[in-house]
Write a protein that binds this DNA or RNA. Sequence first.
DNA 1: GAGCACTGC
Length: 732
Amino acid sequence: MKSKSIIDHSKKKKKKFNPLAPIQSKKLEPKVINFHGNGINTEYDDDDYENYTYNLSKKQLKEEAEKLLIQRKSLPVYQNKDEILKYISENTVVVLIGETGSGKSTQIPQFLMDLPFSENNNRNAVSKPKIAVTQPRRVAAINLATRVSKEYGCRVGEEVGYSVRFDNKSSNNKTRLKYLTDGMLLRELMLDSKLSHYNYIIIDEAHERTILTDLLLGFLKQLITCERKNNLKIIVMSATLQAEKFSDFFNKAPILFVQGRTYPVEKYYIANSNNNSRDNHSDVVESMIRSIVQINNGEPLGGDILCFLPGQEEIDKACNLLNKISPLIHKYSKTPQIVALPLYAALPPNKQTQVFLPLSEKKQFKRKVILATNIAETSVTIPGIKYVIDSGLRKVKVWRHQLGLSTLLTVPISKASCSQRAGRAGRESAGKCFRLFNEQDYGKLPIQNEPEIIRCDITNPILMLKKIGVKDVVNWTWLENPGKSSIIYGLQELYELGGLNENGEITKKGSEMALLPLSPHLSNVILEACVSHCLDSVLDIVACLSVENLMLNPAVERRDEINEKRLSLCHRGSQYGDLIMMKELYDMYNSLKTSAEKDQWCQELCISSRGFKNVLKIREQLKGYMRKIGYKLDGEEEKQQQNLSDTKRILKCFLHGYIKNTAIGMPDRSYRTTATGETISIHPSSLLFLNKNCPAILYTEYVFTTKGYARNVSRIELSWLQDVALVARKSK
DNA sequence: GAGCACTGC
């Protein structure tokens, strides 16, 4: 039986790759395993573990590891260890499909650590291998390294370590197993294009198809056909059904399948009806609430409900409604009282953590209902979920390079997402998943989500390719070719920013841009700021722009009050817009002394205080990179009071990165973009939303929702526009 | 006068 759970795709892949198969077979013994795959374990506190291990002797660490070994041996991957290793040793590339709970991300790297690895030219020099395991998310990399070092019997940063942005716990000579984010490995690749210190590279969660994993796979394919032909092995790990895509890409690499350990999840669909089509998104909130009430009523107490909705708007609406009606329902129907909790990225952190806390009064007649976006699909694991209700929708940002703008669309999810969401009900015990669409509609869903690289702006990825020395980007080893026109748009954009010359070769400036952890546009802004001697101020703003969800959305009741407050505090910002506001906020934040003061200040202005801490880190990192590139920083003494000429200088730097993102004020008080002449409106989240008298505006983002909106808007003068355009033309 | 899903360096 055991040997059947791992197979070569040449035999019977069809049966094993049935996308409609239930989440788990019946053979499962209901045994609780302490960790599932690499799901993010919120119970871990890395600092605690570090402090804890610090006091342990080597011997004690080994003893701890011995204890864990018993548990490890029960994992499906462990039970197939020899067979898996046989495949890996016989092939350059292996694709491994490990279901949730199979232990693939923790165990397979450890198996490899024990293998002797002979360098290709020298059979005598047998060394212990070095392994890199990539993850799409920081938390996952950190938690995995923490867990595995414990199993291995060492401290984090010794034989087992990790490397993520702002946090590196690994040592060059000691660490042999390193968990890192895929962005980090790409950075290593830019500095050492052969990745010469690794013998094995494992790309985990490859099915998520982030731009960065796609790029890595493309590079690895090049490496194993040329420079590292005989001494680098690759394992592509994926939880769902893209195995054949990866296998084909790597010349029919063998596919291994390891069953997981999750509990069965029963699935229910809504019944067919003629007019209740899913095209009608307007009533998702309503049907979601109906289902919640029904399930709360029909299912036994014990086990919380996780609901997937497309966005913040729907979630807030549903939460408000539910919390209003739940006391009434509870009173009249004697069903558990519903406690509705929202969960999405822009939610203040203290509200986010509420979903993890057990309801305060023990054994009360209450049930948690969590209404979440996609954040709960992969990034966050909530304990205690037994029921999932899936609207089948999500929001995607789609970049349209033809128009230079992005659109935000509500779209049906893929079958893979469906099963990922359903799986959230089966982490701790058997569960149920209710889908708010019928079975025919399910059948029509795409198998996978569209890979990111198809729908995003790829200007930065192209710069990376150029930096690593790829000459012909159109015919590169793309796992998925983003299309000629998208590539050409990126090349053109880089040429206009001065990152490429007319032959499409990377310039010195382009090389510098590639090293900065920013979009090429923002990189260009800070490089320009060096020349204009306003790097300090521009760095403040760029660091703020780099943090997502820095300015949180105030709740409706507090909205006007907070807008007023922001406006009255930022004198220059209220006149010149959001970028200057960020500079002012940055200075205010830094002038506060205690962290309690800072936190309170953030709260009052509805600013993420964790976000602001990140701003400071990013600013430091950018400064470091600028020094490395060879720029002399102006030094802090230049920090004088801002005046008009400074504001002008700062905004002109931004024009150098965003000359295309400008619009001119019309007599009817609308704005028309300089690039295409389209009408564009200032986004309601901007400080300039009420200000209708700008001669021209500059914005860092152009989004189309109900109409075209400019985000992060600044007031500029027409003459600045001319100046910058002339300079840009001259330098070509 | 109206609203952005999620990551990463």
